[in-house]
């Protein structure tokens, strides 16, 4: 099972196992990671599962879709070049070790 490390805004790190095919958002909710809200349950509506992808992983998590790009304009914390919605990051074995930083707030 691929592992994902979520680094909270206060630098606390939590590493969890993900199911192949789940989204990073779903993985976070499954493990009770505070800092991912996921109000719309993965419907790409709410922009409350914002993450900053660690630079070393940016090339591997795929690109930002057009709808995601618009949603990212509405995130509560600052949008940065490595901002993604974690509901749009699908976990595969290739992402084993992925590091995602959590913004200060989601709403």
């Amino acid at each position: 099972m691929p592992s994902i490390t979520f680094i909270h805004h206060d630098d606390r790190a939590e590493t969890v196992s993900a199911n192949d095919g789940d989204s990073a958002m779903y993985t976070a909710l499954l493990h009770g990671i505070d800092g991912i809200t996921g109000e719309c349950g993965g419907g790409a509506v709410c922009a409350t599962c914002h993450v900053y992808v660690d630079d070393s992983w940016l090339g591997k998590v795929g690109t930002v879709g057009a709808d995601e790009d618009e949603l990212l304009e509405g995130v509560a914390s600052e949008r940065l070049p490595n901002s993604r919605l974690s509901c749009q990051i699908k976990i595969t074995e290739a992402l084993d070790g992925l590091v995602l930083r959590l913004p200060e707030r989601q709403v």
Binding site: L29, G32, T37, G38, E39, C40, G41, G43, V45, C46
Partner: peptide
């Protein structure tokens, strides 16, 4: 409570478009 996943707004492609 961790409320994510409740279906009060539905779920999936028809999930309430005005939920925000």
């Amino acid at each position: 409570r961790k409320t994510s996943g409740h279906v009060g707004f539905g779920s999936g492609i028809h999930m309430c478009v005005g939920q925000l």
